[in-house]
Write a protein that binds this DNA or RNA. Structure first.
Length: 593
DNA sequence: AAGTTCCGCGCC
DNA sequence: AGGGCGCGGAACTT
């Protein structure tokens, strides 16, 4: 029945009943809600008009079900708009992608089936129910019925045909059953359940953050742009400060006509002015001593600010004092999130002052200190590395343990190990690192070797890497053929090493992403218990931001810390690794440490 | 003219 | 010659 029991994914069991939500293929404009047991057996079935769904959700939510649907960003935004939030969900498409690829259930029916509609990225037209959900069902019925072949006059150029086809074939109850079976047959079902629950909760959070938005002061942003660039040009031209710098660049080059915005043109001008550069990159320019360098670097910096986060960005992305990025959970192969539009994950430090709490509210900003090294220590069970992580600053812990001399070296060495540096300052530190942290280094080295062999690697919770593509296989095969030439062998070695660096990083970056999802999910649950509706407004790989009433800010900070500890326990049990945070309560984002 | 690729830079 | 991204605009392709 509808009654749910248990405390959910923390027990590493579902512990709840599922409520599957889907379009009713037989009745356009209607939504069917099916109760499904933990084992995937369907039970009670209710059909409601789509417009009644928010009320139904609100009513059933008190039983704490896990809502199951094909795509969170198809179903949840209309519910949020109607004021209905849910605690738990299960996003079939995101979970399908994980399960299809996971090496821990690679013999499942789900994994062995040919690719189908669930493997396709959700198409834009598939989002149509956002319209029909609150529209007059009668008007939605006409074109969809037409798609069934009874020639329903006006339709929207095939778009609705597509929806009808999808609804007919995407049987969400069957898919849920297939996924539950895959998990049950997995070699690590508990970890997978945690991953799928965390991924799905992430999708809820992404939709909620989009709905709530980041408080964004266009006044602060405008003042900051004006101070840096000069007054906003009326019709699109260059702001005055940029114009001045461009003139200085041309003067320094003795070239009155060079277009500073054209890299090839600029490069030619730089070279004829005697600079020894192969590109116009900042790093290369910085090594030159020439009067053009200073104004050119200043120009590039400001031009970047203008084009990436200038007035047109503001106009496009900030509305009613809120910046609403479109997050894409699972958008990165490693499990990290991506974003669509607005560049939310690349918000430069120079504009963060524009993120300002509402009056009477605070921003609580927290980031996990040296997350990836800590995750590596936990995954590998490297006690010495965990001990270094006992220090709030893991890199300083590495110095204190006498492994390297400076914090900078510790950081270089650690990131070099995780990224696979083979040359330069970080590579030379590898022998020391290997002696000090043998298990941690062995874990990433093993992942790299597997990748070089073209094998799959997996994160702690069971997200697996893709196989290298056809081009990779071809290059590698050619080098092993009878007619292989030295060039072929070299090329193959390069491709193998490239893929090894990818898989090396995959296991750490992907597990860090899992920790971060669990952190955020645990935090979200704690925030629900606090007064004044503090809510997540930003997430950036290892950093979260909560918009909180001032009176709740300290409780929120405590919740963030507790959630980090909970995430560590969820993934790694009561292991020895601390996940240290930097937490600040501020009025604007630039004030966060 | 419109679509695609590449560069350079922003973030972790 | 360190991993993962997104974006704007120039450069290039059709």
């Amino acid at each position: 029945m509808w009654v749910a029991a248990g405390c959910g994914w923390r027990r590493r069991e579902w512990g709840v009943s599922f409520l599957v939500v889907a379009d009713d293929a037989a009745r356009p404009g209607a939504v069917v809600v099916v109760a499904v047991s933990d084992q995937g057996a369907p039970g009670d079935r209710t059909v409601v008009d789509a417009r009644e769904l928010p009320a139904l959700v609100a009513a059933r939510e008190q039983d704490r079900p896990r809502w199951v649907w094909d795509d969170t960003d198809r179903w949840y935004p209309p519910l949020l708009a109607a004021g209905s939030r849910v605690e738990r969900a299960y996003d079939l498409r995101l979970c399908h992608a994980i399960l299809r690829r996971s090496a821990t259930c690679d013999r499942s029916g789900l994994a062995l089936a040919p690719a189908g509609l669930w493997d396709e990225a959700r198409r834009q037209e598939h989002a149509l129910p956002e319209l029909t959900l609150f529209d007059d069902p009668a008007s939605a019925a006409t074109p969809t019925a037409g798609a069934d072949g009874d020639g329903g006059g006006a339709n929207l150029g095939g778009v609705l045909d597509d929806v009808a086809r999808l609804d007919g074939k995407l049987d969400v109850v069957d898919e849920l059953a297939a996924q539950l079976a895959a998990v049950a047959g997995s070699r690590a079902p508990g970890r997978l359940r945690l991953l799928l629950a965390a991924e799905s909760t992430g999708a809820l959070i992404a939709a909620e953050m989009h709905h709530d938005g980041m408080p964004w002061s266009v006044d602060v942003h405008d003042a900051l742009l004006t101070r840096a660039l000069g007054a906003r040009p009326v019709h699109g031209g260059r702001p005055p400060r940029l114009d001045e710098l461009a003139a200085q660049v041309r003067a320094a080059l003795g070239n009155p006509s060079v277009n500073v915005d054209s890299p090839p043109e600029l490069l030619r001008a730089l070279r004829s002015a005697g600079l020894d550069v192969a590109t116009t990159r900042t790093g290369e320019l910085r090594e030159q001593t020439h009067p053009v360098v200073a104004p050119l670097l200043a120009y590039k910096k400001l031009a970047r600010l203008l084009s990436a986060n200038g007035w047109s960005w503001m106009q496009a992305w900030v509305h009613e004092g809120r910046f609403r990025p479109q997050y894409v959970p699972g958008g990165v192969v490693t499990g990290r999130w991506a974003t669509n539009g607005g560049g939310a994950l690349q918000l430069p430090a120079s504009v963060r002052a524009a993120v300002r709490a509402d009056p009477g509210w605070k921003l609580v900003v927290a980031d996990a200190a040296q997350l990836e090294p800590r995750v590596l220590a936990a995954m590998s069970g490297d006690a010495a590395m965990a001990a270094a992580g006992r220090h709030a600053d893991l890199y300083q812990g590495v110095v204190d343990a006498g492994i390297v001399d400076t914090r900078a070296e510790a950081k270089y060495a650690m990131l070099g190990a995780i990224y696979g540096a083979t040359t330069g300052p970080s590579a030379v530190l590898m022998p020391q690192l290997t002696r000090a942290f043998p298990r941690a280094v062995a874990l990433v080295e093993d992942a790299a070797r597997a990748g070089e062999r073209g094998e799959v690697v997996s994160t702690w919770l069971g997200r697996s890497s893709p196989l290298p593509g056809a081009a990779w296989q071809e290059v590698v095969a050619r080098a092993e053929g009878e007619l292989a030439r030295p060039d072929d062998v070299r090329a193959a070695r390069g491709r193998r090493r490239d893929w090894g660096r990818f898989t090396r990083n995959f296991v750490v970056q992907g597990t860090a992403a899992e920790w971060a999802l669990c952190w955020m999910a645990a935090l979200r649950r704690r925030l629900l218990a606090l007064d004044g509706r503090p809510h997540l407004i930003f997430f950036l790989h290892d950093e979260v931001m909560v918009h909180a009433p001032a009176a709740a800010a300290d409780d929120v900070a405590a919740a963030i810390v507790a959630a980090a500890a909970e995430a560590g326990r969820l993934l790694f049990g009561d292991g020895p690794v601390d996940f240290a945070l930097d937490v600040s309560v501020v009025d604007s984002y630039d004030q966060a440490s």
